[in-house]
Design a protein around this nucleic acid. Structure first.
Lengths: 243, 243
DNA sequence: GCTTGTCTTGCGGGAACCCGCAGATCTTAG
DNA sequence: CTAAGATCTGCGGGTTCCCGCAAGACAAGC
């Protein structure tokens, strides 16, 4: 049994190493990689079945790395280990997990006990373990507080990328007016209107929406970069023109 | 001699504690705070002259905390200790440092030797120490690659907040056309035009500018939040109504 | 069937945005 | 003082955005 740790902070890396050795005495070998890119290579070379993965790394973030690892070996068990419970990350993870794969999601602020428990549960018993703080975000469809539909979230990302309404309509195969409608209902969910109501001063609604999405941690730079890469793919592989 | 450590990650906190005790044997007491808010209180209560401050914390980020600490005791020596060399953070720090104050800025990835050296240099010899990677950003005015004027950066922040051109004009006491001019030169610096040139597909320029600023780490959520708070101050203290 | 509700699409217009052009102001160098 | 250069400002227009209104599509329920 061999475990691969992918984490770019040296302290956290050694902490994880120690925790893994302590929680899993049956573990023969613990490998380490310093960023997502190297993690992919190491996982491919060593054929590790168990991975502890940091999100938010320099060279290549944990979501990208996990996706390629799962693409090559879908039975790999991955425990995600993240700083915050940003909605963008949680969504990103749940978007790439393949059918039936086992994974976990724990915050760096959890106690060592919980971490070790999660290691044993995910790696040995193939249970999915998700921290309570994260769980709150994962179940979508709550009381409009910060529960965006998948469709609305998609629109939000496209807007945050700086796309035009018309461009979004082409990409999503929708009418122009429909895109604008979804934007409006996005504005309502984000309380954009309430703010402009206070003063006569007006916001530019679409950029304001991006701003509050940032502040509410619905978006972050990594999510935008991911979407940007997907966009460039669509952009070059197929030309978008006409009805 | 007493040192206050403000850092919300437990591992980094203990690492810093050890480093401080090792680098500064003449240090009597090492205090710790878990976020910016508590750090302010502890600094006020203990009258610590030396602070090691993390940026990017939950409750109140390091820049805010440092500002209030410096406002109460401008002779406090602060060593900033950050994950990345994000332009937004560097700008934020250099914006709040008072006249003649001594401070340092080192990355978490630097070696323990460099960290200890920085601790001694800043705290004992009152030297300003700034990591090489950070230095690159600090000197502004380079070959248009990512060198934004202060004025351009201000505009960028206001746009990222979601403000209207007219609103920005009022806030900055400028003409509407001037704001739009600055926006145009911002677009050029960010290469917004080059991108739209590839395809007929159009971007919404202002949100696109925010997107690339995010991806180039010129902006981040903390910077937006900071600006938002300033905005709300102006908003309520004085009413903005054009002639 | 009829109604109710949600989602999509079109039309139209007022407002905001993007920008070329040209005159006015201010700085800097010779 | 003058000339050159950068910045600010107003005007006019083409485009996009924001949104109220209304008609069609589809599903669920009495």
């Amino acid at each position: 049994m061999r475990v691969l740790i992918v984490e770019d902070d040296a302290l956290h890396r050694s902490y994880l190493n120690e925790a893994v050795r302590s929680a899993l005495p049956e573990c023969d070998d613990v490998m380490e990689s310093e960023d997502g890119r190297l993690g992919e290579i190491e996982a491919r070379k060593s054929r590790a079945e168990f991975v502890v993965m940091d999100l938010q790394m320099r060279e290549r973030n944990g979501i990208e790395a996990a996706r390629t690892i799962w693409r090559e070996r879908p039975d790999t068990k991955i425990l995600f280990w993240s700083n915050y419970s940003d909605e963008a990350y949680v969504r990103g993870v749940s978007r790439i997990v393949p059918e039936g794969a086992t994974y976990g999601y724990v915050l760096k602020s959890t106690s060592e006990e919980r971490l070790k428990l999660a290691l044993r549960s995910v790696f040995l018993e193939s249970q999915c373990v998700i921290d309570r703080e994260v769980r709150g975000i994962q179940q979508k469809g709550m009381g409009s507080a910060h529960g965006l539909t998948d469709g609305e979230y998609e629109i939000l990302v496209d807007v945050a990328l700086g796309l035009t309404d018309k461009t979004i309509a082409n990409r999503k195969k929708l009418s122009l007016r429909t895109v604008q409608n979804r934007l409006q209902q996005l504005y309502e969910k984000l309380d954009i209107y309430k703010e402009t109501g206070d003063d006569e001063s007006r916001y530019n609604l679409r950029t304001r929406a991006v701003a509050v999405a940032l502040m509410r941690r619905l978006l972050n730079a990594s999510a935008v970069e991911r979407a940007e890469r997907e966009l460039q793919n669509d952009w070059t592989s197929q030309e978008f023109q006409g009805p």
